[in-house]
Design a protein around this nucleic acid. Structure first.
Length: 106
DNA sequence: TTCTTGACAACAG
DNA sequence: GCTGTTGCCAAGA
């Protein structure tokens, strides 16, 4: 049973993304329980009202690229502390959010 | 009900 | 790294 809608679940996860890190649509979809619904994540974000104050700028695609027509996202991420590659992509190698995982020691 | 579109992901060239 | 194609699922016309 779906206690909450898919988009609601996405918002919840997105809100958990720490500053200085980013998550991919596939990551959010996976954590929400539907690894194949990465597109719905984007749909949910597009429908996400500003009331949610979601750090949607921390959500990027699998390649670390920002959303189309959204140049501000890069500026926001840079202020958050996210590193960018010289080609304009997010440095997922460093800023990719692991999503509650591991506290692995290494 | 069918077709199109979409803030995507993954693979091939 | 970029482009083209395929697969996935949902919402809208």
């Amino acid at each position: 049973m779906t206690d909450i809608s898919f988009d609601e679940l996405i918002y919840k996860i997105v809100a958990m993304i720490p500053r200085g890190q980013v998550a991919t649509y596939g990551q959010l979809a996976f954590l929400s329980g539907y690894p194949q619904r990465s597109r719905m994540v984007g749909q949910a974000m597009a429908a996400a009202p500003p009331k949610r104050k979601l750090p949607c700028h921390r959500v990027v695609n699998f390649a670390g690229r920002t959303a189309p027509g959204w140049k501000e996202q890069r500026e926001l991420l840079e202020k958050e502390g996210v590193l960018f590659k010289p080609n304009g992509y997010v440095d997922l190698d460093i800023c990719l959010w692991e999503g509650f995982l591991p506290e692995i020691d290494m």
